[in-house]
Design a protein around this nucleic acid. Structure first.
Length: 467
RNA sequence: GCGCCGGUAGCUCAAUUGGCAGAGCAUUUGACUCUUAAUCAACAGGUUCCGGGUUCAAGUCCCGGCCGGCGCACCA
């Protein structure tokens, strides 16, 4: 059995296809190349054998002949899925297929399992997600979507660097879960004998770096939320979080739309994309609509955060939403927006002016004390990003945290806890700053035209097999 | 967590009102000097997800469990 510890490979399938496109049927190039990849198909024809080999760039045919190919019999008995390294001349067969005429070859690895039906691939979700390595060979779409995700992350990073943002990394193990309202995962450090939570957001750490003088920072990283799994939610997901000193939320909206539209342009070459069979526009400028206006449109009457709570609760009940006792008018307004209008927002749009009640870290709107300078962007009916002018006043921030603590006491198990370290950081002075969070998996779904978040995560969280 | 749907050979899928569990591909063997999902012939391949139950008889019906898809809830 032929085997090898390495292979000096000097050509890729796709390059051969383009470099020898002019080679005519039956013509031999006289050029020897060394290619390597996995056997996808194998057709034995007596003293000839044809194999389709795929590498990371594409596919090329291997043409073996008993008179030319070393160990021809063994070659013709290779299994689908085996990795091979081949040396031979670039030729085009009489029937027009560009090929490497195999002179010498080596089996680099053996495949003991097949890679699914060679026509239908692998359809079983369980098998596809639990063994993505096989799925990637069996299904072109799987490979394409994960590749697009990689291109999205690269484009985001490059565009942030281009604007002078410094990439940083902040702790994943946190003594208290802060920066967002979500249920955390809990773990334990043995030597410190201390409880830690996996981060639900890097927000407060990043703002502390702004206090420290990093005027523009961003972090791309994994967040962990101990919540339901769905086609749009994975327990661990990737976010971009970014802060810019001296900006306000309007500056950040401009940055956001240019970032997202720019990523679409970088990866797809257009900002007018097709998503799930429907045209979707990411072209700038995005529409800007206040949550108050949208909620009013949704319920068919003028409402706001100043509308009596009882009335908002009734409007919610009309829509089969039961208001929790801890919800004030602000939360009710948001719920009404969510119940009526959120799913209808197809083209990219900014929703602005969130109530203070649901925005404990955002700066108050000077024109309405109950609202904040905050925005969320939506596309395809889903939230894509969230940003605001940061609350920089340590006294007010403490009061906001205390409001959250009261919510927690009232039974809201996702309310924030008081972060004394963060309050102390604010006391050293946070300049006027705007922040942004973008769900990169969500963005990748949009760009890859996928409706299930698992398709843009190489190894999505699955329930472990038991029994 | 709740609801609906699904799980049959390594892979993709069949199996009529409950009546002998099948095909294609892959694997194995053989034929074939220009194939393209090659073709042709033959062999082999099964705890029908698991555990109970009903029945003369269960892949099919009932109950429980496991895993998945979708929806709801939660959220990004």
């Amino acid at each position: 059995m032929t085997s090898s510890y390495q292979f000096d490979h000097n050509a890729f399938a796709a390059d051969l296809q383009s470099n020898y496109a002019a080679l005519s049927d039956g013509e031999e190039s006289g050029v020897q190349v060394r290619v390597a990849g996995r056997l996808m198909l194998l057709r034995r024809q007596g003293k000839l054998a044809f194999a389709t080999m795929r590498d990371s760039s594409g596919e090329v045919q291997l043409f073996a002949l008993s008179q030319v190919t070393e160990e021809f019999e063994a070659f013709s008995k290779l299994h689908l899925g085996d990795w091979v390294g081949v040396e031979g001349e670039v030729v085009r067969t009489k029937r027009g297929e560009l090929s490497v005429k195999v002179a010498t070859w080596v089996r680099l690895a053996e495949a003991l399992h097949n890679f699914g039906d060679k026509w239908a691939g692998i359809a079983d979700f369980d098998l596809r997600y639990r063994h993505r390595e096989a799925d990637l060979w069996a299904n072109d779409v799987s490979r394409r979507s994960l590749l697009r995700r990689s291109h999205v992350v690269r484009a985001v990073r490059e565009r942030c660097w281009a604007q002078g943002f410094v990439e940083v990394e902040t702790p994943i193990l946190n003594p208290i879960p802060t920066g967002a309202a979500a249920r955390p995962f809990k773990t334990h450090h043995n030597a410190l004998d201390a409880e830690f939570f996996l981060r639900i957001a890097p927000e407060l750490w990043l703002k502390r770096l702004v206090v420290g003088g990093f005027e523009r920072v961003f972090e791309i990283g994994r967040l962990f939320r101990n919540e339901g799994v769905s086609p749009r939610h994975n327990p661990e997901f990737t976010s971009l979080e970014l802060y810019a000193a001296y900006w306000n939320y309007e500056d950040m909206m401009t940055f956001t739309e240019e970032l997202v539209a720019g990523v679409a342009l970088d990866v797809l070459g257009t900002t007018e994309i097709e998503y799930q069979g429907r045209q979707l526009s990411l072209s700038t400028p995005w529409a800007r609509r206040s949550m108050t206006e949208l909620a009013s449109e949704g319920v068919g009457e003028e409402i706001s955060v100043h509308t009596p709570r009882e009335h908002l609760v009734k409007l919610l009940a009309d829509r089969d939403v039961v208001a929790h006792a801890s919800w004030g008018p602000g939360r009710c307004l948001e719920e009404l927006f969510g119940a009526t209008m959120e799913a209808t927002l197809w083209d990219a749009v900014f929703v602005t002016g969130h109530p203070v009640e649901i925005s404990p870290l955002a700066r108050r709107d000077p024109d309405d004390e109950l609202l904040t300078q905050r925005f969320e962007s939506y596309a395809a009916g889903r939230e894509l990003s969230n940003g605001f002018s940061e609350l920089i006043d340590p006294v007010e921030q403490r009061a906001r945290f205390e409001d959250q603590a009261r919510l927690a006491a009232a039974g809201d198990d996702e309310a924030m806890v008081i972060d004394e370290d963060y309050l102390r950081a604010l006391e050293w002075g946070l300049p006027p700053t705007a922040g942004l969070g973008v769900g990169l998996d969500r963005l990748a779904m949009l760009i890859a035209d996928e409706s299930n978040i698992r398709e843009v995560i190489a190894f999505p969280t699955l329930k472990p097999l038991r029994d």
